[in-house]
Design a binder for these strands. Structure first.
Length: 363
DNA sequence: CACGTTACGGTTGAG
DNA sequence: CTCTCAACCGTAACG
């Protein structure tokens, strides 16, 4: 797996593409680079030139810009994990009832009833084969089965709406930790809100949240391992730093180091670019950043040139985080349209929300 | 040449 | 704890 190709010397590992750029197979490009791609495009630089300057394959530049145009987010999609189950206890309960009331009912009929009765919607209704499996495994002889329903219901699911959207599972995820704690009101803060408030992007949002939480929550930090890591990808970048903290030692350091830098031609950029680094272990990491910091910005910061970077650039990689953070979204694009089922969705909608606030890109 | 697409080899993480 | 497997990734190459 990690065949490390030491690029230069330090730990950087990763591979070098035809353009001389460093990348880690299977992992998203650092947010700083993703951000840079978008920034350059907004400055009017052609994709082919961006590809050459940043040493990122044109296919990747194309993909990132397309996604940005579509969702307003520079962040990569959610990697790994499973989609939320559609066969929630509530659904199973209904299936059982249909079967009990009509033992000869066909799976497809059950499916239609789930839709007709509003138990499911077209996005989360179980497939006929899933229903057959449920009948076979969980409701074989109706009687015993389970206990579940009692306790849980599948509340959320109803919300279908987003579920699908976020494969990631945020809904839950976040809520648990961060949310709850945070919200004083008791009302759970949804990620969305948060994000909004802070103006982050969605997915990220989450992560941010996590990150943040981490922040505040020492415990979290403590468990380095635990860290919030999950946030995944984007996080890596974003999270900026949190260096110190835990530092988880190895990890961060590396990150910090960051420097991996890939050679960047253009001086200007380079600075911050370098910032990003892959974390060795990658992922995310560990560092969680100071969330607060960057966020704050007022906004417009994201202007291409200097701002963010500038300070960002400096030392540790983290800044990178800021940067993107700030711009994670584009001004916004259309909103309403897409959300549902489309593939990328996850963040999309979030983004959408976000956009509002985000900056306007125009310079 | 520019760039949208996609096969490929890879990683992740909920279940 | 380990295994599955779908979702995502970026590169390379095709058109």
């Amino acid at each position: 797996v990690f065949s490390s190709l030491p690029w230069t010397h330090s730990q950087t590992y990763g591979e070098v593409n035809q353009l001389g750029g460093v990348f880690v197979n299977g992992r998203p490009l650092p947010n700083a680079i993703r951000l840079r791609i978008v920034e350059l495009a907004q400055l009017g630089i052609r994709p082919c030139d961006i590809s050459r300057q940043l040493r990122v394959s044109h296919g990747c530049v194309s993909k990132i810009l397309a996604r940005y145009n579509e969702t307003g987010s520079i962040l990569p999609g959610a990697i790994g994990g499973s989609k939320p189950r559609v066969t929630t206890p509530n659904v199973v309960k209904n299936i059982r009832e249909y079967k009990q009331n009509d033992p000869g009912i066909f799976a497809w009929e059950i499916r239609d009833r789930l839709l007709a009765d509003g138990v499911c919607d077209k996005y989360n209704v179980p497939s006929v084969s899933s229903i057959s499996r449920i009948l076979r495994n969980k409701i074989g002889n109706l009687s015993q089965t389970n206990q579940y329903e009692s306790g849980k219901q599948a509340p959320a699911q109803t919300s279908l709406s987003y579920n699908h959207i976020y494969p990631y599972s945020y809904p839950n995820a976040m809520s648990p930790t961060g949310t709850k704690m945070t919200s004083p009101t008791g009302v759970p803060v949804t990620a969305g809100h948060v994000s909004i408030s802070r103006a982050w992007p969605s997915a990220h949002t989450v992560s941010n949240i996590l990150g943040i939480r981490a922040f505040m929550d020492p415990a979290a930090i403590a468990g380095t391992d635990g860290y919030a890591p999950k946030m995944e990808d984007w996080s890596s970048v974003n999270r900026a730093a949190f260096p110190s903290a835990h530092g988880v030692n190895g990890i961060d350091k590396s990150t910090l180091e960051g420097d991996i830098k890939y050679p960047q031609p253009s001086s200007t950029l380079s600075s911050y670019v370098s910032a990003c680094a892959y974390s060795p272990t990658n992922q995310y990491g560990v560092y969680s950043g100071p969330a607060g910091g960057y966020v704050a910005p007022g906004h417009h910061h994201w202007q291409p040139q200097s701002p963010a970077l500038s300070h960002a650039g400096s030392g540790m990689g983290m800044h990178a985080g800021d940067i993107h953070a700030s711009m994670a979204f584009k001004h916004q694009a259309r909103e309403g349209d897409r959300k549902p089922p489309s593939p990328l969705t996850k963040q999309q909608h979030e983004d959408l929300n976000v956009h509002g606030l985000s900056l306007t890109s125009s310079s």
